[in-house]
Amino acid sequence: MDIFNLTFSDSFPLMIVRFIILILVTWAIVHKLYYRKSHRRDFYFSFMLMSVAIFFLVYFMIFELEDLKTKTSIGIGIGLFGIFSIMRYRTDAMPVREMTYMFIIIALSVINAIANNVSLVELLLTNTLIFSIIWICECRLKQAAFKLVQYDRIDLITPDKHNEMKADLTERLGIDVLHVEVGSVDFIRDMAMLKVYYSATASDSDLQQRLQLSKEDKKQFT
């Protein structure tokens, strides 16, 4: 094999086209669907670069295996997909929504990388269908955020006063309270831990990440 060969393979132009399709679809999913609600720049950065890295990794690995007349390229590609799909960021817990988007980004990267025998029309249709399904789910499923609240009126935590407690929380928090779950109760301090669900907008969808109690505060109720 001549490592100084400067010519391009016959499949290189098609690979570039598939890569462009992947980047456009990934950007549309991350920017138009994910980032519009979450406003998490860290995951925006990770999803885009992960898509690029996985595409080229899978493509060149399969290309090399096919060049060596190996029949295990698809199996290794699927195995690589499984490895990346269970990957977790150990420095911080990843929310379920972010894990779902990460799985979709990985799936798109692998699909576009191994689609050697698929026409561009079929590839475009597949990417469009995936984007459309995500868009429908994001538009139709109402988003409900929550935050933990230390509540000082334990006289309202009984089931018969649930509506009165919701009205009190709505007035004091200034949000549209949908549902309230009562957790630990401290009768000595007259405090209760509440999980308050409310209607979230695009601007405050990240309240769950920023307004939860600290671990030290939660320990008082465990």
Rank of each mutant, 00 (worst) to 15 (best):
D2T: 11
N5H: 12
N5S: 13
T7H: 12
S11K: 09
S11C: 01
I20D: 02
I21D: 01
I23A: 15
V25Y: 11
V25D: 06
A28I: 09
I29H: 02
L33H: 05
Y34E: 08
Y35E: 08
K37C: 06
S38C: 11
S38D: 10
R40L: 12
F43H: 10
S46C: 05
F47Y: 14
M50R: 07
S51R: 05
F56R: 01
F56K: 02
V58G: 05
Y59S: 02
M61E: 02
I62K: 06
I62V: 12
L68G: 05
S73C: 00
I74A: 11
I78F: 13
I78V: 15
L80K: 00
F81W: 14
S85Q: 04
M87C: 08
R90D: 04
R90C: 00
T91D: 05
D92K: 12
A93E: 06
A93F: 06
M94L: 07
M94H: 00
P95L: 02
R97S: 13
M99Q: 13
Y101M: 15
M102A: 07
M102C: 04
F103V: 14
F103D: 01
I104T: 14
I106P: 07
A107H: 01
A107I: 05
S109L: 04
N117Q: 12
S119P: 03
V121F: 14
E122K: 08
T128W: 01
L129K: 00
I136F: 11
C139H: 10
R140K: 11
A144R: 10
A145P: 01
L148I: 11
V149I: 15
R153V: 03
R153I: 02
D155V: 03
D155M: 03
D160V: 09
E164F: 04
D168L: 06
D168M: 04
T170Y: 01
R172T: 14
G174K: 11
G174D: 10
I175G: 03
V177W: 07
V177H: 06
L178F: 03
V180D: 09
E181N: 12
G183P: 09
G183S: 08
S184D: 08
D186V: 02
D186S: 09
R189C: 02
D190N: 15
M191Q: 13
M191F: 02
K195H: 06
S199W: 01
A200R: 02
A202C: 00
S203V: 03
S203F: 04
S205G: 11
L207T: 10
Q208T: 13
R210P: 00
D217I: 04
K218I: 14
F221S: 09
